[in-house]
Amino acid sequence: MTGREPSPFRPHRTLQRMYPEVAAGGYTRYDGFVEFYQRVNALLTPDSEVLDFGAGRGNWTDIGISDYHRRLRDLQRIAKKVDGIDVDPVVLENPSLDDAKVMQPGEPLPYADSSYDLIVADHVLEHVSAADAPGVSSELLRVLKPGGWFAARTPNKWGIIGMGARAVPNDLHVRVLDRLQPGRLAEDVFPVQYAMNTRRDLKRLFSSDLWNVSIYGHASEPQYVGRSEAAWRVASFVDRITPPRALPTLMIFVQKKP
């Protein structure tokens, strides 16, 4: 992987106070990024050909995350090839890809049948419209090799993040996220649709006749409430008493049947 020199990881005060273990390796026991990418890494081999679906600018290469996060996210470190595709032309600048392409929403993927061993979509499915969702799942199935995996991380429509995002009009998302997540670029904020963000919708779109489907909920550190320690403590308590089906994030691992 090439790119700009990454910013050093400096955990903010609330993160340090609530999760002191972050000092040992740069991640907490609830870290959703680590939870997702550890499992993605477990699916990779040196012969794996990977598609990063919704790859974006690859901003993880220069934001202030730990070296351990970067190693997990750098799929080129293990895989034979990592291609990427996005509706935003900024994907052409992504330094973590061997090849990048731009597509229009809803159009077929420009790859041959059975091209990839693994497809990763990290916080992408929430931006797919209801009209495009069936075509997206069909195209993912087509370009995956038999036995290959589709791995996705996305907000749960019925979790606190999903409900909060849907309560805020799309044209106000940039303003709200700028307060809660300072430093996030406006061009990295996209309209949300939530057509692929419930277990029911996912199991309908990824039929058990064609896929082996594994979906589970996860609650990470409450980054979505800003950096107030009081807000973090309240949000963390809510997460701990939330039933598994309503946890904020869905982890999705579906295998194309041989």
Rank of each mutant, 00 (worst) to 15 (best):
F253H: 12
L180G: 07
K81C: 11
M103L: 13
D99I: 09
S207F: 10
D62I: 06
V87M: 06
H123L: 09
E5N: 12
D239K: 04
F150R: 02
L141E: 14
S138N: 13
Q38D: 13
V120F: 06
N156L: 05
L92V: 05
S214A: 14
Y27R: 10
Q255V: 06
D122P: 05
V87A: 14
V40C: 05
K145D: 09
A152W: 04
V128N: 03
Q76G: 14
L15M: 04
R153M: 09
D67Q: 11
P191A: 11
A195R: 07
V124S: 06
P258T: 05
R245K: 12
R199Y: 11
L205G: 01
E5H: 09
R245F: 12
E229D: 15
R175G: 12
V238K: 02
R39L: 04
H218L: 14
V189M: 00
M103P: 07
A23E: 08
G25Y: 10
P8W: 05
S7Q: 10
H69Q: 09
Y68D: 06
H127K: 00
P11W: 03
Q38K: 15
L144R: 01
V225S: 10
R153D: 10
M1F: 06
D67G: 11
V34C: 06
I215N: 08
Q16V: 12
R77M: 15
L140T: 04
V136Q: 01
A195H: 04
Y216D: 14
E107S: 09
L202M: 03
A112I: 11
A23L: 10
D74L: 01
A167V: 02
D188Y: 02
A165P: 02
R204K: 10
G64I: 01
L185V: 01
M18S: 07
D83V: 01
P244S: 12
A186L: 00
R77D: 12
Q255A: 01
T249M: 14
Q76H: 11
P191F: 10
L180P: 11
D83Y: 08
I252Q: 08
G135H: 07
D201S: 13
S129Y: 02
R240V: 11
I241F: 02
K101H: 14
A152H: 05
G135R: 07
P11Y: 07
I63C: 03
R10M: 08
P105A: 11
N170Y: 07
R17W: 06
R245M: 15
I160H: 07
L72C: 00
R4L: 09
P108S: 00
D99Y: 14
E107C: 06
V254N: 07
S48I: 01
Y19N: 07
L125H: 08
Y19Q: 07
A133G: 06
G164E: 01
E229P: 01
F36D: 00
S115F: 11
S7D: 04
P46H: 09
V136N: 04
N212I: 04
I161H: 08
A42K: 07
D209N: 13
R70Q: 03
N94F: 07
V91M: 04
A112C: 02
D188P: 00
M251P: 04
A231W: 12
Q181G: 02
V128Y: 10
G26Q: 00
P191H: 02
S96L: 12
K101E: 11
V40T: 03
S96Q: 10
L250A: 08
V87N: 05
N59C: 03
F36S: 05
Y216S: 13
T242Y: 11
